[in-house]
Design a binder for these strands. Structure first.
Lengths: 149, 149
DNA sequence: GGATTTCCGAGCACTGCACTCGGAATTCTA
DNA sequence: TAGAATTCCGAGTGCAGTGCTCGGAAATCC
């Protein structure tokens, strides 16, 4: 797979592959564990790389792993209780267009000015992105054809 | 200035500095040209680096440059006719969380599946981000205290 | 005991970011 | 007309993150 050209607000393959993986797990929810091998071949993704990503998702408490023959992964909770935001944040880091808009840390730095005009841009962006991502659950995405408003 | 830690949907200093620069130009709109030196010292940004960024903005038709003593830059059009989206797109590239959501190219690739569930996530994001950025003009941002909903 | 599968750490090539530097070309002012 | 100011241009550098691969240990099932 390739690296992507320069684009703003780009989600790297970490987020993309991770999302595909999680949707796949959601589709097999309550059907026992799913091996990475199965996911990788279904989604046509590099298995060894997925291993890295799923490790992060496990540490974030989004999936459970079970070792050994017949083992694999399952979602740690109901698909309706996991959002796209959870996944993106786990794999790509917190949603903060700029440092001065750190999530949960409302009035952090902006060293030079208190009310720099540009801050409004990043604050707006941060909330707008977070709302969009946190509003979509795996349950929604696991449906065959999705139409999000 | 530093590089930033890993965050999702991160705007690099290109976008950040560029926005500060453009807001500064907007504040001095119709007061003649503004030299990069002035902007750099007012905004506390590395002048040589700004030079690179402003070159891109000029090629994108957002600013005009005038050489020589007393020269400098001016916005190429009225602040109300330049949006945050214009600036970000010029400096950081098009807004496309994933390739399959390329702006203006609605149903591009998504090689494997037509209706992959995850696509909905990136499509929604793309439009949500674009709307937010395209809805803010330099005229808005140039005001002293900004409160965007 | 052997197959399967998760878990873990290391390593590597490539790209973009965040700058700096040196030097041209242009324009104003004294 | 000299010189200062300023844009314009291309090259180069160090660092960090991306997108992988590989080898091997530990667990679990048959």
């Amino acid at each position: 797979m390739l690296g992507n050209p320069q684009t703003a607000f780009h989600v790297s393959t970490r987020g993309e592959y991770g999302m595909r993986l999680m949707v796949d797990l959601a589709r097999h929810w309550q059907q026992g564990t799913v091996s990475l091998h199965a996911v990788a071949s279904r989604e046509d993704l590099p298995e060894a790389y997925l291993e890295q990503l799923v490790a992060v998702l496990r540490k974030a408490g989004l999936v459970n792993g079970k070792r050994g023959a017949g083992g694999g992964y399952t979602l740690a909770r109901d698909p309706s209780a996991i959002t796209a935001g959870d996944i993106v944040r786990a794999l790509e880091g917190p949603i903060e267009p700029q440092i001065c808009t750190a999530e949960g840390d409302p009035v952090l730095n902006c060293i030079r000015e208190q009310d720099c005009g540009t801050r409004a841009v990043w604050v707006k962006l941060q909330s707008t992105i977070a709302q969009a991502l946190d509003g979509m659950t795996l349950a929604d995405l696991a449906k065959e054809k999705v139409t999000v408003a």
